[in-house]
Computed example of a mutant assay.
Amino acid sequence: MPEQPARAWRTVLEHIERDLLDGKLGPGDRLPSERDLAADLSVGRSSVREALRVLEVMGLIRTATGSGPQAGAIVIATPTGGMSTLLRLQVAAQGFPLDDVVQTRLVLEDAVVTTLAGRAERDTAEAHRILLAMDAEGLAPQEFLALDAQLHLALAQSSGNSVIAAMMAGLRTAIESYVVAGSEAIADWTTMADRLRTEHHAIVAAIDEGDADAAGALVRAHITGYYEHVLGHRPTD
Rank of each mutant, 00 (worst) to 15 (best):
L21A: 08
G66T: 03
A111T: 01
A214P: 00
D110G: 09
K24D: 09
G26D: 10
E56Q: 08
H152L: 13
V57Y: 06
I16A: 06
D188T: 00
A8C: 14
A154N: 11
A187G: 12
N161K: 08
A187H: 06
L196F: 02
S162E: 14
P69C: 09
L55A: 02
L20S: 10
V57T: 09
G72H: 03
E176Y: 06
R18C: 01
D19C: 13
T236Y: 10
V112L: 13
L25T: 04
R119L: 15
D194C: 08
T224Q: 15
T115G: 14
R195E: 14
D194N: 15
R35E: 06
R195C: 06
L155M: 15
D213H: 04
L147R: 13
S84W: 02
V112Y: 13
S67Q: 09
I74V: 14
A212R: 03
A165F: 04
M168I: 02
E137R: 14
E3M: 12
D22M: 09
Q70I: 05
D110I: 00
W189C: 08
E126Y: 01
T65N: 02
V102A: 13
G44F: 01
E176M: 12
Q150T: 08
L218N: 05
I203W: 01
E17P: 03
G23M: 09
L106Q: 05
E199M: 07
E176F: 05
A111R: 09
Y227V: 06
A149L: 12
R88W: 08
E50W: 00
W189V: 07
I164M: 12
S67Y: 06
A156Q: 06
S33E: 06
A165R: 05
G26S: 14
D188K: 07
P5C: 11
A174E: 09
P97D: 15
E209G: 15
I175T: 14
D213E: 10
A166C: 12
R220F: 02
G118N: 06
